[in-house]
Design a protein around this nucleic acid. Structure first.
Length: 836
RNA sequence: GCUCGGGUGGUGGAACUGGUAGACACGCAGGUCUCAGAAGCCUGUGCCUUCACCGGCGUGGGGGUUCAAGUCCCCCCUCGAGCACCA
């Protein structure tokens, strides 16, 4: 029988790293010690680290949310270590069609469902170890919040920036509901596949177009992701051009007179009607051979000739019936001739007036001058209906007679032809000249047009804040007095929308009828609720003041904390949410409530996470459930992995196997702290690497280059433990601080193991010594004729001669230096290139 | 169609104002430890050729600028996201 000795413990065995225990302990301590509660009224150097708040879905927190929040949290924690008072609030964007549809589907009232979802979200968020100040949590569905959303509406109303008009909306006859454009896919409802209809309904709008110029101009001053700025610029879509007046010819007068008037006198108009068009190419006016009005254009019924009336009305009816989406996607050109003519103010010639659905009522004046020679769409239309095509612009090598077999849209280096006395002018000069000449007869004026539309905020739905308006038969439209806010969303059992196109709120008799605030007579409430984008367009103002019921936001706190120092969110909100927030902020500034007009000083868009190369989706069944990963690896490893898998602003690929790498890093960090020796001194070479690492991480984190910051820490760890080296405590202490924004729980734990009493997040950020960072000798590449042939190790300040000598001493290099040296390129400290 | 991003080893991804391409991590291979395995630790790992050294080739494709190009310029292919008749 063999005797075997029991396993001898080698040295002192540190307790293993148990993420679950560590995380539970520190989350509890942060709560009891209020570690994450920011001193809003007097904390030094306020830093508002905001992330886009989530929609609390029933499925729970998505990794995409957690990816974004972690990225923000790291930046916030870093700024705290740098000495700022950091405010990192959290809330829920819980109103909206999404919640409502889901509630309908599962048959649970949203007022029951949403709080349940929020509880689950809060639980998951807390597990992730975010530095959230939970004392300022908010939900847009809370009457204490939406009271002020309604207040915001009233401020816009007071500024005459809220108005009502009839507008076309998508209507799904099966779901009996209004659909947002993005809910209509290829002309059918995305949920049930029913063909969508168009309905005209009274809607509330905000006059955001009044602010288009300012919203555009301010973009130049913002520290935002370039891609977001571009998206906003494109969305606002400024285009400079001219509005040109085309007099409509009286049908009878025209029929009886074949006179051709000359030039631009514009005096032969026999009808008082005029058609205004917007164009960015006034230089092509001589080529405008017909006009096109949108089918909805108000003048259509007035100008249409009797013999064309039937055809025109049929076309208008057809266009009206067509859903918006199909109309905007179909590129086929259709239209109808009205039988009427207008005078081209440049040529004096009569040109026919058509209607066609490729002209949109909502852009410009709803009418265009068609220049088929130089506009692709007009060209197609002219071909279809056999309308004249005239060349008025000639490019290099072209003349007035060069045939056009396609629209010629170039302008660079082109001159006018067939344009009377403007012939020979460049396109650029002609634009000005023609508008100036027409302007003298009030026939044109320079105009700036924006693609941006007014913001439709009405929703004929249940789950949203009621728009605070009352209709009285005597007093008309009456805003709800601020003292009567909030207009509480009534709790109704059957909130299912019906075929009427009227909000379900109208069915709640005792809510619907209310006394007029002015005359006291029986009046009716507005039954539309507002768009969720309005809820989120001002929430950042509410956070610091979320405990105040008497004001939407406290003046002092707002001064101290806003604009938001750093805002992080997804590019899917690059346009609407950010634009609406900027708009509401400007309006509130103009109304004197705040003293800044741009809400987010800095904005960075984070990337998207995919899983094993594929987009995550329920149908693919590849959705990452954070709970499961946190159970298995711990929140610290999960957070760090999310940040490691790719550049934060680009997103990355979540691969299950990858997480083991960062877990190993944390294990080694744990072990290094527990094993660290306290005797002797730190190693000089390790110290150099340490200082380089402090510098690198400190530069990478503010750039949100988290993946490279983590790689740098791993590299340092490799140095620290190379060849089973036992590190010195001074070598590991700063590393715990560097890692703390990424892995806050283990960092706190190790910080206390190192004997520190206070939270690591109040310990400051380690400094580095620039002198220590610089290497005194460098490895330089040596090339011969541009090919790298070897390396030399020389002092950082070595001269060219010294480097040459060292290089030639290298056999691998000398071998290739066969002839006389013709030229030497020397980049000090970097490389040496010898040309022979 | 337009706008904005991308295309780098077996994989995710590094690379500052042009200056040793492939940091860091996954995976893989070998070693160590172990009764054995797991975990850990150590070593190696772009491709081709070679026992090895040496050498050659390499950042989607093709041209160009430069002593030097993943990086700058031109053309093309391709993937992703957003917008979509905006006059």
């Amino acid at each position: 029988m063999t005797e075997f000795a029991p396993t001898q413990p080698v040295g002192e065995q540190p307790a293993g790293y148990d993420p679950a225990a560590v995380e539970r302990r520190w989350q509890a301590r942060w709560e009891t010690e209020a570690t994450n509660v920011a001193d809003l009224s007097s904390g030094a150097r306020p830093f508002y680290a905001l992330m886009m708040f989530p929609y609390p879905s029933a499925e729970g927190l998505h990794v995409g949310n957690l990816f974004a929040f972690t990225g923000n949290d790291i930046y916030g924690r870093f700024q705290r270590l740098k000495g700022h008072t950091v405010f990192e609030p959290m809330g829920y964007d819980a109103f909206g069609i999404h919640s409502e549809n889901f509630a309908l589907k599962v048959g649970v009232h949203p007022s029951e469902l949403i709080p349940r979802n929020i509880d689950n979200f809060r639980r998951q968020l807390k597990r992730a170890g975010l530095m959230v100040d939970w004392t300022h949590e908010l939900s847009t569905t809370d009457p204490r919040y939406y009271k002020w959303t309604q207040w915001v509406f009233l401020q816009l109303y007071k500024q005459k920036l809220a108005y009502k008009k009839k507008a076309a909306v998508n209507w799904c006859p099966f779901d009996k509901t209004v659909l947002a454009n993005e809910q209509v896919v290829g002309g059918v409802c995305e949920r049930c596949g029913t063909a969508v209809e168009q309905r005209f309904l009274e809607q509330w709008f905000f006059r955001i177009t009044d602010y288009a110029g300012r919203l555009l101009a301010n973009l130049d001053k913002l520290d935002w992701s370039e891609s977001t700025l571009t998206a906003q610029r494109n969305w606002i879509g400024k285009s400079e051009g001219a509005e040109i007046v085309f007099p409509v010819q009286d049908v009878m007068a025209y029929a009886g007179s074949a006179t051709v008037n000359e030039g631009m006198s514009g005096e032969t108009t026999a009808s008082a009607l005029e058609i205004k068009v917007f164009t960015t190419r006034p230089d092509t006016l001589f080529g405008a051979t017909y006009l096109v009005l949108a089918p909805e254009h108000p003048l259509v019924s007035q100008i249409v000739a009797d013999e064309q009336r039937q055809a025109v009305e049929a076309y208008v009816a057809r266009a009206a019936k067509q859903d918006l989406v199909a109309r905007k996607t179909s590129k086929e050109k259709t239209g109808a001739f009205t039988g009427a003519y207008a005078t081209n103010p440049a040529t004096g010639q009569p040109i026919p007036i058509w209607i066609a659905d490729y002209v949109l009522m909502e852009y410009g004046t709803g009418a265009i001058m068609a220049v088929p020679g130089h506009d692709e769409r007009d060209f197609e239309f002219a071909r279809e209906y056999d309308l004249p095509i005239v060349r008025v612009v000639a490019g290099a090598g072209q003349s007035a007679d060069t045939p056009l077999d396609a629209a010629f849209a170039e302008t660079e280096g082109c001159v006018l032809v067939n344009s009377s006395h403007f012939d020979g002018l460049t396109v650029e000069d002609a634009r000005m000249a023609i508008v100036t000449e027409l302007a003298a007869h009030h026939a044109a004026k320079p105009v700036v047009n924006y693609r941006l539309h007014d913001w439709c905020i009405s929703r004929q739905r249940y789950w949203g804040p009621p728009i605070p308006i009352i209709y009285c038969d005597t007093c008309g439209v009456v805003p709800v007095p601020e003292s009567q806010l909030p207009v509480v969303l009534p709790d109704i059992e059957d909130f299912r929308p019906d075929d009427s196109g009227v909000s379900p709120l109208a069915r709640h008799e005792e809510w619907y009828h209310t006394p007029c605030p002015q005359c006291g007579k029986r009046a009716r409430r507005e039954t539309d609720v507002s768009d969720t984008f309005l809820d989120s367009a001002w929430y950042f103002l509410r956070y610091p003041s979320s405990d105040r019921d008497d004001v939407p936001f406290d003046e002092e706190l707002t001064k101290r904390w806003l604009p938001v120092t750093s805002y992080i969110g997804g590019n899917e909100h690059a346009v609407l949410h950010l634009l609406y927030s900027r708009f509401v902020t400007m309006v509130l500034k103009d109304a004197g409530f705040i003293d800044f007009e741009e809400p987010f000083a800095r904005f960075r868009a984070h990337g998207m996470i995919v899983r094993e190369g594929a987009k995550m989706s329920k149908s693919r069944g590849n959705v990452v459930n954070p709970d499961q990963y946190i159970d298995e690896w711990g929140a610290d490893a999960f957070r760090t992995y999310l940040m490691f898998l790719g550049p934060f602003e680009e997103g990355g690929d979540f691969r299950d196997k990858g997480i083991s790498g960062v877990k190993r890093f944390l294990d080694r960090l744990w072990k290094s702290v527990h094993d660290a020796r306290r005797d002797g001194a730190a190693d000089a070479e390790v110290a150099r690497k340490l200082h380089q690492t402090i510098k690198k991480v400190g530069e990478d984190v503010p750039r949100l280059s988290y993946n490279t910051a983590i790689a740098a820490m791993m590299e340092y760890m490799n140095t620290l433990r190379a060849g089973e080296r036992v590190p010195h405590v001074d070598e590991v202490r700063p590393l715990v601080q560097l890692a703390s924004p990424f892995a806050p729980h283990i960092a706190e734990e190790l910080w206390s193991v190192l004997g520190e009493g206070r939270s690591i997040f109040d310990s400051g950020w380690p400094n580095y010594d620039e002198a220590l960072v610089a290497e005194d000798s460098v490895t330089m590449a040596v090339q011969v004729n541009g090919k790298t042939r070897g390396t030399i190790s020389v002092s950082k300040t070595a001269s060219q001669d010294e480097a040459m000598a060292a290089a030639l001493a290298e056999p691998n290099v000398a071998k290739f230096v066969t002839g006389a040296v013709k030229r030497v390129i020397f980049v000090p400290g970097r490389m040496l290139n010898v040309l022979v």
